[in-house]
Design a protein around this nucleic acid. Structure first.
Length: 153
DNA sequence: GCCAACGTTGGC
DNA sequence: GCCAACGTTGGC
């Protein structure tokens, strides 16, 4: 079992939206970055746990926990010409993008802010706090996971 | 809304 | 295969 951090803009799809999906969860679609794609496709497995991160918002930070309930499958939005994430170079035979199914697990009472995380020396190796990192999917070590959980309430 | 830091595209 | 131009992310 591994740990991850997924970013999402709360205005687009926040943790409350995931919670509203209930037990069946939501496909984590729309990721169009190869590095992130490889992790989604190859490394992220059913049972893994995810820190849900809100980006592009007033107080960016980790707001709760989600879990992977289904291994990645071809992201259907790549085949849909009407979809925002349509990719004309992808085909059903040769899908390019993948998404796992994720489900809400819990929400923290208070956001663990990026500012707070940046100030913690034990977390300085996290991709999240490193300058210029734009990955929307990134691994979290067990140590980092436990440390951050300790900050939650 | 600005802009730094990246990633991608496409001409050559 | 190089690299300039362009697009996107995301903190501030």
């Amino acid at each position: 079992m591994r740990y991850w951090l997924f970013k999402s803009e709360p205005d687009t799809f926040g943790i409350d939206d995931l919670k509203a999906r209930g037990k069946k969860g939501e496909p984590w679609d729309g990721v169009r970055n190869y590095q992130a794609r490889n992790m989604l496709r190859d490394d992220i497995k059913k049972g893994d746990l995810i820190f849900f991160y809100h980006s592009n918002t007033k107080v960016p930070g980790i707001v709760g926990i989600a879990e992977v309930i289904k291994n990645a499958f071809p992201d259907p939005t790549q085949f849909d010409p009407e979809a925002k994430y349509y990719d004309p170079k992808a085909s059903e035979d040769k899908p390019r993008w993948f998404c796992p199914q994720v489900r809400f697990k819990s929400k923290f009472k208070d956001t663990i802010s990026l500012e707070q995380l940046k100030a913690i020396p034990a977390l300085e190796d996290m991709a999240l706090v490193r300058k210029g990192n734009r990955l929307s999917v990134m691994p979290v070590t067990e140590q980092q996971w436990n440390f951050i959980l300790g900050l939650a309430n």
